[in-house]
Structure formats: structure tokens, C-alpha cells
């Protein structure tokens, strides 16, 4: 099994390790609920070095990314910024979701670990058309410092004015990239650097008050924020409309050609299922695969969990179009009432 550079550090913090798509990763360091509250109320640090980093280089890197990515990279080129979007196939099915960073003119992609091989093949397939080189970077790691007190921690460790960074902006400090991005719905930063710097940053973050947070809390945090998880909430069989992600498909520049554009334009959104947030009114826990019924049709729970903040069960679901604001979910042999809400369960940032 693959290990991140900080594997031993997780063990020394009593992490429970699991196999996460071939990587040995910390699922929790004790109570995942305590870790969840730590991020919502204070600050936590995640080792997310299992995520894939690709470097795109060559004169046509921008044109290449504008062609393979749903969002328009032109918005960030020559700025120090991050841009979220999708990798679409010709049918507008979602190959992966990812972030493109542009820092001091260099482009970098951060995407999921389970999709690494598939993405790499896709990148290489189209790289020759643009004469760019795409390189998987394995000597760097990613740490996420998330929570209302993350600014203090970043400022203390790096001596930068972290409060002046806006969402999606990034900056380079002594070879370390600090980006105002995250997957928790909290104010926070993601730090990408060579492995040799990771331990020092990890330790000083913890000395400054952050606590290590595992992947289990990462999942409840992202679900409360309404962020999709690739493989659970989306895959190649669905298009951006059915995931509430059509905002990541940038159509402003009519001249921009990109993979999946024509198929996306041909979709009639009204005929597609839609992504909603669901709240269970009764006690119980929503789980992926549970069936939903409402007046105008049906649906399926994609992600479901217990929300430590709301103290009830929440989920993301894909349902037939409706204006109804409630429905029924089948949990084992019972039909329980659910409320249809915005997926942004917590609107903090």
C-alpha cells in the first residue's frame, strides 16, 4: 500500500489507518465527531498528500487546459489563482473534478487519487495535440489547514498576511504554495510543497493549535458544505446539470472549444434529474443507495451521513425534476419523511 510522507507522524498521533484507493490514510485519530467540531470551531490539519498533482508545462499549456477543462483557465492565467472545474468526456460525462492552480505562470492540476491512472491517460492522449508535457509529481505533498483560526496559524508559520488572501487566491512563500482553497466549507488554506518541508509544517501547525483531522471528518465537513465527492455523487454516467455543477462549465467565450461542449449544449436541463440536499426529519441515518419518492417521481441518495453540526442526518440526492419540497426515503422497511433543501447545509463562506 502507498504511504504519504507523513505516515509515521499519523501513527504517532494514534491514527486509525485505512486503505483509501491503495493509500494507507488516517480515517480518524480518535473521535471523528470531535475532529469535525475542531475544524468548525477552531482549526485542524489534514494530510491529503494522496491527491494527485500534475504539472502542465509548455508554451501552449493555457490553450491545452482551456480545451480539456470545463471551466475557462483564461480567468486565472497570469494571476496567482485556483479554479475549480470538471474534466468532461465527449458526452459531457464527468471524468473527474479538479482544481487548476496557476502560480507565477506555472499550471498545476490537483485531482482525486482514485482517478489518477484514468486522468493521466486522458491528459497524455490530448497533450500531443498541443505539444505540452504533463508530469505526475510524486515528490510533493498537500496539507489542508482549515477552520476559523486557520488564518492565525498560517500567518504565524509563514509570516504572510494570510487574511489578505481572497478565496481561490494563492501565493508562494520560500518554495511553498499557500492557496485559499479547501473542502470543508470553512475558511482555510491548502499548502503544497516538496515532501522535505512537510514534517516541519505539520509539526509547527500542531504546535500552533491545529489538531490532526482524518478522512472521516473530511467527509462530514464536505457534505455539510454541499461539496460533491467524485465516485459517490458523480461519475462518467452523469453530466454537470445532474450534479449542480453546470456553473463550472464556462460558456462566456463562444469561440472556446472544449471537450464535451457540444454534448453539454445539447442537454435540455428540464429533462435531467437534479441534485438536491436532503434532511431527514426523523431519527435515523441516510445512506447511499436509499430510494426516494416524491409527488413527481423518484430519486436516489448519493451521499448520506450524520451531520455533527446540525445533529441530524443529511445527504445529497439525485431526483426527478419537481418543485416539491419534501418526499419520502425508504430506510430498511420504513418510509421516512425528508425535506428537500439547498445542498449548502452550512452557508459559512
Amino acid at each position: 500500500m502507498k504511504k504519504t510522507f507523513l505516515y509515521e507522524d499519523h501513527l504517532s498521533h494514534d491514527a486509525k489507518m485505512i486503505d483509501f484507493s491503495g493509500w494507507s490514510m488516517p480515517i480518524n485519530y480518535g473521535s471523528q465527531i470531535d475532529e469535525h467540531h475542531q475544524v468548525r470551531n477552531d482549526v485542524g490539519i489534514f494530510d491529503v498528500s494522496h491527491m494527485s498533482i500534475f504539472k502542465i508545462s509548455g508554451q501552449n499549456a493555457e490553450s491545452y487546459l482551456r480545451y480539456i477543462f470545463s471551466n475557462d483557465v483564461k480567468k486565472i492565467s497570469s494571476k496567482n489563482k485556483a479554479l475549480y472545474g470538471l474534466l468532461l468526456n465527449e458526452n459531457a460525462g464527468i471524468i473527474d473534478d479538479l482544481i487548476v492552480y496557476c502560480l507565477e505562470g506555472d499550471f498545476m492540476i490537483v485531482s482525486n487519487c482514485a482517478t489518477k491512472e484514468k486522468n493521466e491517460a486522458w491528459y497524455q492522449k490530448h497533450a500531443s495535440e498541443f505539444d505540452v508535457s504533463v508530469e505526475y509529481i510524486d515528490n510533493r505533498g498537500i496539507l489542508a489547514v482549515q477552520g476559523p483560526n486557520s488564518i492565525k496559524v498560517i500567518e504565524k508559520i509563514f509570516g504572510v498576511e494570510a487574511s489578505s488572501l481572497n478565496t481561490n487566491e494563492c501565493v508562494k512563500v520560500d518554495g511553498v504554495m499557500i492557496a485559499k482553497t479547501g473542502y470543508t466549507g470553512e475558511e482555510g488554506f491548502e499548502v503544497i510543497c516538496e515532501n522535505k518541508y512537510l514534517r516541519k509544517i505539520w509539526n509547527s501547525t500542531i504546535e500552533t493549535g491545529a489538531k490532526p483531522i482524518g478522512l472521516a471528518a473530511r467527509d462530514t465537513l464536505r457534505l455539510e458544505a454541499g461539496f460533491c465527492l467524485y465516485g459517490s455523487d458523480m461519475d462518467e454516467s452523469v453530466n454537470p446539470h445532474a450534479c449542480g455543477l453546470s456553473w463550472t462549465v464556462d460558456l462566456h467565450d463562444e469561440d472556446r472549444e472544449f471537450i464535451g461542449k457540444q454534448a453539454f449544449l445539447n442537454i435540455n436541463e428540464k429533462n435531467e434529474q437534479k441534485m438536491i440536499g436532503i434532511l431527514l426529519k426523523d431519527k435515523g441515518i441516510l445512506r447511499p443507495g436509499y430510494e426516494i419518492a416524491h409527488k413527481d417521481g423518484k430519486g436516489t441518495v448519493l451521499s448520506g451521513t450524520f451531520s455533527p453540526t446540525l445533529k441530524k442526518s443529511i445527504g445529497l440526492a439525485r431526483v426527478d425534476q419537481t418543485v416539491e419540497q419534501s418526499g419520502l426515503v425508504k430506510i430498511r422497511n420504513k418510509e421516512l419523511e425528508i425535506e428537500f433543501v439547498s445542498p449548502r447545509f452550512l452557508k459559512k463562506i
Binding site: 480515517i27 471523528q32 465527531i33 472521516a216 441515518i285
Partner: peptide, 8 residues
């Protein structure tokens, strides 16, 4: 199991 949140 980890943090237990519901029992029937």
C-alpha cells in the same frame, strides 16, 4: 464502528 449516532 467509530462514533455511534443512532440505535434502533
Amino acid at each position: 464502528l467509530g462514533d455511534i449516532v443512532f440505535i434502533e
